[in-house]
Amino acid sequence: MSQRELILAFESSCDETSVAVVQDGTQILSNIIATQIHSHQRFGGVVPEVASRHHVEQITECTDLALQEAGVTYADLTAVAVTYGPGLVGSLLIGVTAAKTLAFAHGLPLIPVNHMAGHIYAARFVAPLTYPLLALVVSGGHTELVVMRAAGEYEIIGDTRDDAAGEAYDKIGRVLGVPYPAGKTVDEMAHAGHDTFDFPRAMHDSDDLDFSFSGLKSAFINTVHHADQIGETLDRNDLAASFQAAVIDQLVGKTLIALRQHPVAQLVLAGGVAANRGLKAALEAALAREFPETTLLVPPVRLTGDNAAMIGAAAHIELAHQHFADATLNAVPGLNFQHA
């Protein structure tokens, strides 16, 4: 028996099939990611049935590659972990079924992991986490402020009332003619433009921590349509810059309010939108100005998107708490942290 703790982790909540081997919650021995972006680009967004079909195609090969690359066998493994929610039910079921099968076949404990916990624990690969901690989780499906008072304890203090930030990027990306997923391209365009349109910053003055992007999205679409009607051509880079500035102002503004209410030593920026350069720079500047004692932790780009290594890192904490599932584990598409 090996002294190292080795977790084989599965992630299939949306359109990435990923399998990883993580050692002691801190070291990635392998992190295979099969992305379906190219497939869903055909439809301008993730089609759940197509996603599920790709997952079942990929799952065995990804598992094999993860074990090979890590150079480990089943006898070396401590546990199997899997994302069981939130996400698309058909997608989640492939990872859950695969993980249950392996755990059963080799008599290994099965650890159910919340996908959002995974996103936060991606930061564990950057530095040890200290608690209490605040996390801003921003992705195609989520925009949440989460307080962690201890390892493995999550409380939502801010949530989106309508679209997730990443979703808003995709929607305005469609208007700009940017292929799905739009985040990266809009970020690049924003850097080449200027905030000239002064789009609305929702609820910026209120004390509550919830986000809203639908007003911004409507303002953006109305501006473009109005220009179309009067035959005026707007600068696309300026449009992108103005949109991104409004998104970032809201994300940073709410995060600063949260930090005033919950002083912490570490702020984790997690989720796919964490790869946005503008957001990262704005958060860094805001922290330097108002909370110089708070460190911003941003996982590397490969770990901000959906991947199984982050699930392995979160599972390490669940393992310490002996939080196991039995063979009846099912996908929970609407799984969420407790609201404060």
Binding site: A34, H38, R42, C62
Partner: peptide
């Protein structure tokens, strides 16, 4: 893979106006 015997509705609509071969591979290890 399972025998679905039916392409998804999204793919059916897409294939009606696009050439399948030019778009592959749909899934890539990154």
């Amino acid at each position: 893979t399972p025998q679905y015997l039916r392409v998804t509705e999204a793919e059916r609509q897409w294939l009606a106006t696009h050439d399948d071969t030019e778009h592959e591979p749909y899934v890539e290890k990154v």
